[in-house]
Amino acid sequence: MSKSAQSPLSRTARLLDLVPYLATHQGIELSRLARDFSVTEPEMIADLTTLWMCGLPGYTPLELMDLSFESGFVTIRNASTLSNPRMLTEEETIALLLGLDLVIESLPSERGDLRLIAIDLVARLSSRVNVPTKLSAKPSIPGSVRAIIQDALHKKLALEILYHSSYSDTVTSRVVTPIEFRDENNCEYLWAFCQRVGGFRSFRLDRIQSAKLNEQTIVEQGTLVEEKAEKISYTLRSHSRPRAIMERFSIDKSDYAGDLPAVAFSYEWIQRSILACSGSVELVQPASARALIVRAARSILERYKSG
């Protein structure tokens, strides 16, 4: 556990929150209680021992809180003064408000009933926090897609997904065996074995248009060997809008000097990305790909001249 969780103040806060929690979870297992409060069992025992010494002035057995935890199960009596949960802090409220907005935006459209309940909760929480703005969180990924993938991971089942590949600008249906979620460059990916290509691929979650469990296909996870996709190294030269280029090509800030080294997994992606910088960037290497860009650009120009 981090040191800060054991500072006198965070321990005091935890003890104040422990009392109402125990009052509504009488007989809870010590191990679960420790887990619920993100501390170790010895730390939880230390907390309970401290709490045991507290109570109303007088501090006779009549006034002290009555805790029992020797059996591995925790009960509390005589703690009515502290038995109401504490008010939410502003930061806790902000966390819930942003989370609630995300939930509202993720609800399926036919659940207008839940939407109303959630909006009412937002109103009740907002009135208790010193922030007069709307706290918005628009999901980039439908909440239901992630739930289905989680379900597949949990049940070790294959998934059938409709996937939009931005490299080739095509939508394909694929059966995949999900392995795990991965975060890269602020985006969330599903790392999975794709039956269609017979190899591992990562799928950006916001490009998965729909997903459903595929009960028929069962793949032994042990037989799947991870392969590395072939990397293409290339070099860029920035002519204007450097920030847009650094972001689009995910170049590390430390490499920002002179010609920019970058890595990708597809020539098609490199070509599209260079075109999409509309003259701000030049592909320096590999020379062979420069010719392809000229050809693609000329073909676009032709269309506009004839059109």
Binding site: A13, D17, P20, A23, S38, E91
Partner: peptide, 17 residues
Amino acid sequence: ALDRSAHSALTKLRSIG
């Protein structure tokens, strides 16, 4: 980012009973 605050908020909500 707000994992800790969200978690402590949840603990309080669960204490309502």
